[in-house]
Design a protein around this nucleic acid. Structure first.
Lengths: 334, 334
DNA sequence: CTGTTAGCGCGTTCAC
DNA sequence: GTGAACGCGCTAACAG
């Protein structure tokens, strides 16, 4: 049942049927209704693949995230999928497992079958990114590269707030648990952390790099305890939760002995005990805006959309950060 | 740069170029290398859309999950994506937000642009499912419908183990927090719960239905406390964690006063305090097997793959379940 | 082993 | 407002 069958059934040419589905206004009302009726009866719908070939557009976009199962990636993906769907676009998803090479591989594999690509927190090189952007419209999320449109969640200010918050609680030795090297998010957080420490006259100490997962936090916790820090700024919520867990297991109380702050404010943050103080990143908004930007680049959109957008983050104070009381150079019970 | 350009450059016909990329063995070595060289120089790669149209297959499969951001859905999706990629298939993803109608809508939207569809814990009717399966190869995950291939995680036995576990700890009043009505997982859990209660001479009590999310658990906790149950079997980990949180907030200790058991064993289970006793569902294995089955149905696979697979679940005892001590008809401090 | 011939199903000029 | 003709890029059936 192709366009020809419908045409025959309705007594018109295939071209007219095509018009009915692409520019209904250009067809006489009577003809249109006759065609629609025929299509309805035959359960006809335009074949997406044939349409793609003829139009040169696929009606699909793709997204590559560091880890599909990671709560932050999932939050972005969810928003992206919803927004894409609103415009009739389907969404391809691929996870890179934080491997720059896989990332590039999957991105290139997707490129020819989509109208545009969304890269979330990509780790590949600027050059690789630019080459990719030659092949297909690309929008970056949480990464900045000259010449490529991007949406970033800007945690600079909020990170400063986090450090100030801890400082105000009396903390003078705060350690930052670094995320993946080359990650834009990590660089922003790290530099804001350093700058604020300097501003407040504290020494900046970093541990890592760590992969953005729970087990990294567990491992990091022992490293933290080996030092004299009273507060931890972890790369993301998962790491932070790992830290809290291990600390608790070792008898160190949070926040009485050590304060812990995360990043992202994924749903996890409110589910753990104590509830996590964290820097909230607008994942859903970023995902939505990235799609808008991508569809704009792909074309068809009117109005001038900005090609670079920074969405501010925000410190959310909960229960994992508190005043300094316990751990003053006294080593914890192991 | 199409197949014709490469053909011209290599001095062969388009058909030969096509063969080089589809059945290299059928082309003389010399010719093949000449073609490959030409293709290389011109950065030629077969156009996926044109290929799809000619072959009648898209090289993509789709999955519809209840909620992209849900940890269990994400775990399945991740495994599915990895397995699909191994066979060169791209993956479309769509979330239904647990709305049966959206579910059907997105599934139908995907149908014409994929070679097969994976439906995870679908809520739509059997008939809707069968109609869909007429349109495109379908494999179900965690749902059983006559005539449609399926992979299910079978929690029957493990649910019994969970109830026995609680019974052995001295619990005699266990309440089950039901998940979405019409959900296969919920039905399995519920009936196994009832059967085991009966077997052990306990009254089965249910609350719900609840949506599979944290906030549902929070709400459910108060309902639980209004009754006299000493143990809770929650539809899934998220709900269980919601229960634990609210219980803690109300001064009820877990597991000293009330024991809580979840389902899924998502990463969440090990991240919360106390660590969650839960029935582990083999999400990744189910995802992988579902893909294998789908690709088998789509065709090309040899060997006889079973069309229905049940993967056993397993009770994982952690810290949220313990002996009855506290709550013996004494109402908790609000 | 290779080339020729036909489509796959639709969109889009052009005339009418 | 409508139809005929051509092309999107590739694969498949048939010759040779």
């Amino acid at each position: 049942m192709s366009i020809r069958d419908v045409a025959a059934r309705a007594g018109v040419s295939p071209a007219t049927v095509s018009r009915v589905f692409t520019q209904p206004g250009a067809v006489a009302v009577g003809t249109r209704e006759r065609v629609l009726a025929a299509a309805e009866e035959m359960h006809y719908a335009p074949h997406p693949v044939a349409r793609s070939l003829a139009r040169g557009r696929t009606g699909a976009i793709g997204i590559v995230v560091p880890d599909i199962a990671n709560a932050f990636s999932a939050a972005i993906t969810k928003a992206v999928q919803q927004e894409a769907r609103r415009d009739g676009y389907a969404l391809f998803v691929s996870g890179s497992d934080e491997h720059p090479q896989d990332e590039e591989l999957w991105a290139r594999a997707m490129a020819p079958q989509v109208d545009g690509l969304l890269l979330a927190s990509p780790l590949m090189s600027d050059d690789a990114l630019r080459e990719l952007a030659e092949l297909v419209p690309v929008v970056l999320a949480n990464r900045l590269v000259d010449g490529i449109p991007a949406v970033v969640t800007d945690a600079t200010e909020a990170t400063a707030h986090a450090v100030e918050h801890l400082h105000a609680l009396g903390h003078r030795r705060i350690v930052y648990l670094a995320g993946p090297t080359g990650s834009y998010s990590n660089e922003i957080r790290l530099s804001a952390y350093r700058a604020t420490c300097e501003l407040l006259g504290m020494k900046a100490t970093e541990l890592g790099p760590f992969q953005a997962r729970f087990s990294s936090g567990v491992r990091a916790a022992d490293l933290v305890l080996a030092g004299d820090a009273t507060a931890v700024l972890a790369y993301d919520d998962e790491v932070a939760v790992g830290v809290v867990n291990r600390l608790s297991d070792r008898g160190v109380r949070v926040p009485a002995d050590v304060s812990v702050v995360g990043f992202d404010d994924t749903s996890l943050a409110e589910m753990v005990t104590p509830r996590l103080t964290t820097v909230r990143l607008p994942a859903a908004a970023a995902g939505r805006q990235a799609v808008r930007m991508l569809l704009h680049v792909i074309g068809g959109r009117d109005g001038n959309l900005r090609t670079r957008l920074a969405l501010p983050a925000e410190l959310v104070v909960r229960a994992s950060s508190g005043p300094v009381t316990g751990r003053e150079r006294t080593s914890p019970t192991p």
